[in-house]
Design a binder for these strands. Structure first.
Length: 390
RNA sequence: GGAGGCGUGGCCGAGUGGACAAUGGCAGCAGACUGUAAAUCUGCCGGGCUAAGCCCUACCGAGGUUCGAAUCCUCGCGCCUCCA
């Protein structure tokens, strides 16, 4: 078996684990920064390691389109190509079935995309996707799945799951890579379907199991429910991976239900858009309130940004549209997420999970963000400009 | 001295008799973002109200023509270009 997963400690359903891959180990719960095209936008691979990342996510659809699987293979595989020697996971392109919904056609055998770059057709089948990921040499490959939009009828969700399950089976049989292969459970917002999907998938003996089909625009309650239904129904001996989630509160919630791995574009994208995560809540650095704020973004953070730069400077760079603002903010948000995950791991070992909500300014789980017309008025926040995380 | 051109909301800049509180862009104020077609997108952006409607004040200034003027005329003021 290419991957080994051990559960080192538990706290309720939450697990403190270790995933061993061909390119190194991943302490779980872990967060995977999203490097769609091979790098997190604005962050060189070396800096990523310094931020505390142990495993990086890249995207097969985007890499297959550009520069092409052949090119990466000839250049010595994905690790060498992107300059990241640690564990790598590639998403299969299943998410693009949703996000690029108008550019693809799904049939029983697979998916045909029309390139968003030049319109040329590109065929994705379970076997082809497994083969590409094997040739890239990734540590964790994802089976091709159909990520459904929300909402969707029960009939559509059921038919889709039957198809995705077939693809999962074919992927499992086709997998010849050096790393492990994860299957992805779907089921949309239907409890019995979610539970059945988890059970169906669990019988296929994957190296890990993902919960897919969330964070596609559904209400928070449904997203949380999908996790609560699916996670416990997946094999306990393998890592569980919640794809595309989320805010710290979502992550904490999922960890409490036994999820081990997460990935999300939020820390990187929000950073580029001027939204910074801090231990005192969220902060929109471009807001006028920070123009002359000499304090660091988060005094408790050791990222390159917080260790010597002021909010005022970051505010200035962001307003000036300077590239460096994005770089610094991304470095910070990633560091925040990775610190959060480290704290989560420690809390599971110590049995102090509950205290995290205060440490990282997490308001609650299981609720949509409140419609507060005056955010920042939380009495627990030391500064009215620091807003609580959703 | 002569000839011509131009002055529009914080800035740039459309509009050249009614559909104009006045297109755009920038700046400004706020918000969104969840397995990345995102360094993106959205809302507000003269003032006031018993606000999807109404009322004021507005296109350098002052007069005028007209049912009606940012748009036409006259006179100022300011700026620019060319020729001497």
């Amino acid at each position: 078996m290419a991957l080994r997963f051990e559960v080192l400690a538990a706290c309720g359903a939450a697990r403190r684990g270790r995933l061993t891959t061909p390119h190194g180990t991943v302490d779980t719960p872990a967060f995977l920064p999203v490097g769609t095209a091979g790098a997190v936008k604005g962050v060189p691979p070396q800096e990523l390691a310094a931020s505390g990342a142990s495993i990086l996510l890249a995207n097969l659809y985007h890499l297959a389109l550009r520069p092409g699987i052949d090119v990466i293979e000839r250049l010595g595989g994905l690790h060498r190509f992107v300059g990241w020697p640690g564990p790598l996971l590639t998403d299969s392109g299943g998410f693009q079935v949703w996000s690029l919904g108008h550019l693809r056609r799904v049939d029983e055998d697979g998916v045909t995309f029309r390139s968003h770059l030049d319109g040329s057709p590109l065929r994705f089948t379970p076997e082809g996707v497994a083969d590409w990921q094997a040739r890239l040499g990734v540590d964790v490959a994802m089976a091709l799945d159909e990520c459904l939009p929300w909402p969707v009828t029960r009939e559509a969700a059921e038919a889709s799951w039957r198809r995705t399950l077939g693809w999962a089976r074919r992927s499992r049989e086709a997998w010849r890579g050096p790393g492990g292969l994860f299957g992805i459970a779907q089921g949309s917002a239907f409890r019995d379907l979610r539970e059945r999907a988890a059970a169906d998938l669990g019988r296929l003996d994957f190296d890990g199991y993902a919960i897919g089909g969330v964070s596609v625009g559904e209400p928070a309650a449904e997203r949380l429910a999908a996790v609560e239904w699916t996670a416990p129904a997946l094999p306990a001996s393998r890592p569980r991976y919640l794809m595309g989630v989320g805010y710290p509160a979502d992550i904490l919630h999922a960890v409490r239900h036994g999820v081990d791995l997460f990935d999300c574009v939020l820390p990187a994208r929000n950073a580029r858009h001027g939204l910074l995560f801090t231990r005192h809540g969220v902060l929109r650095i471009k807001n006028a309130a920070f123009r002359e704020d000499p304090r660091p973004v988060d005094a408790a953070c050791a990222c390159p940004c917080c260790s010597r730069l002021s909010r005022a400077f970051l505010h200035h760079l962001a307003r000036a549209g300077e590239l460096t603002a994005s770089v610094l903010a991304t470095l910070h948000n990633l560091r925040f997420y990775l610190d959060f995950m480290a704290a989560l791991r420690q809390a599971i070992e110590l049995g102090t999970l509950t205290e995290l909500t205060a440490m990282f300014a997490i308001r609650s789980t299981g609720e949509d963000p409140p419609d507060d017309p005056h955010p920042g008025s939380d009495p627990e926040s030391s500064d009215p400009r620091e807003k609580r995380s959703p």
